[in-house]
Design a protein around this nucleic acid. Sequence first.
DNA 1: ATTACAAGTTAGCCATGTCTAACTTAATGC
DNA 2: GCATTAAGTTAGACATGGCTAACTTGTAAT
Lengths: 148, 148
Amino acid sequence: MTETRNGDEAEPRPAEARAKSFQAVREAHRNELAEDYVELIAELISQFGEARPVDIAARMGVTAPTVAKTLDRLAREGLVARAPYRSVFLTPEGAALAEACLRRHEIVVRFLVRLGLDPETAEKDAEGIEHHVSERTLELLRDFADQT
Amino acid sequence: MTETRNGDEAEPRPAEARAKSFQAVREAHRNELAEDYVELIAELISQFGEARPVDIAARMGVTAPTVAKTLDRLAREGLVARAPYRSVFLTPEGAALAEACLRRHEIVVRFLVRLGLDPETAEKDAEGIEHHVSERTLELLRDFADQT
DNA sequence: ATTACAAGTTAGCCATGTCTAACTTAATGC
DNA sequence: GCATTAAGTTAGACATGGCTAACTTGTAAT
């Protein structure tokens, strides 16, 4: 039996298309942490001149060893540069990614606020949403936010 | 040195608030898979009368053993009921969760389409976004989508 | 009734992301 | 300059969510 189906009904949505969507979400999840880190690191650097693991930990809401492990991965991936017992810095690629993320983040926040959400909740929701917004959707959100 | 800071500048956003946002996102991620499964199972049941692991696998874009493992977890959590070599069904809690998710999913899709996105991309983006939308935001999206 | 094939399961591997506990290094204050 | 303490690292545990390979079960067709 392959998918008992009464033939004349319209296919709600092909199985493979859905599979692709879910695969894309999983893919997004894999990048998500990296994006949050470089975004935060960029911010810390512009605020304090450096990004220390302890500050990252406080803002990400995780412990220091978790930060260390993640930074190792990001270094492996060429997004950050680090030396033992020193602050973290972004590579050019890391900086580029951070900038793109920051831009996207701000668009999402601006959109949500424009929609009528309070800034605090907007920040919170944006944190989750931003990684799942396609380029096309981002444009639309921007247009909406920029509407007079 | 605790957070070198020049004192008179306004705090961009308190560290603990951000930590909370990220923790919320991680929390959402933990529920995400469960929600996607019950949502899909509900749909398969209404379409075909039953939800078979093989159909779930095809639509989630994963292999059968992965589905089996996940279904075991969902059963442990009381969301689905299953017997060896049989189709899967939802418990009352599972059905309730599925309904809530479906409702949310549709609002997000409707909103995106209303915004000007093509239905296919809307479905795709919704899959990622829906799990990160607060109740308040959902209301706003609904209002926007329902606007004449 | 047997056989063959599709579906489901089990076992075991791997990477990720979290944690705690224990240790090392660096910097600060006296 | 030495001791104290904060920051960073290392080791090791655990859960999750993927996978492949190999086995079992159920069913459909001859």
